[in-house]
Amino acid sequence: MIECPQEIPCDPCQANCPAGAIDLEDINGTPTVDFEKCTGCSVCVESCPGLAIFTVDCSSEKGCTVTIPYEFDLPEVGEEVIGLNRKGEEISRVTVTSLKTKGDSAFDTPTVTVQVQEEHVNELRNIRRSK
């Protein structure tokens, strides 16, 4: 899910997608994803400087996951965290299924993947540790 609707001079999402799934007319265009080609690898999530890309994966039988870029104090795998929407409002408690630290990430942006109820996959865009 690319949430980058403005014409800004930027192209790393398109340049780094290994599947060639992101289309951008030119550097000032707005990116679109060809979901037929997209493998869900989340490289774009790590490469986008605007932290504007999230991957939603409902292909597994175990349910859906959402991967978000997350440049804050990282939770642990298995930890229950609070899922937030685009306005930072709480939607539900979710569990961290995997993460990539700044060092693991191909483009230096840490990411967190959480297990999310299907009805929330288009809403959940942030998390907060409950501490």
């Binding site: 800004i8 932290l51 685009r86 930072g88 942030n126």
Partner: peptide
């Protein structure tokens, strides 16, 4: 500012 920068802080509830 850019939409993407605003979105980054909105989702923290600011």
């Amino acid at each position: 500012g850019y939409f993407v920068h605003a979105a980054k802080i909105r989702r923290h509830g600011i």
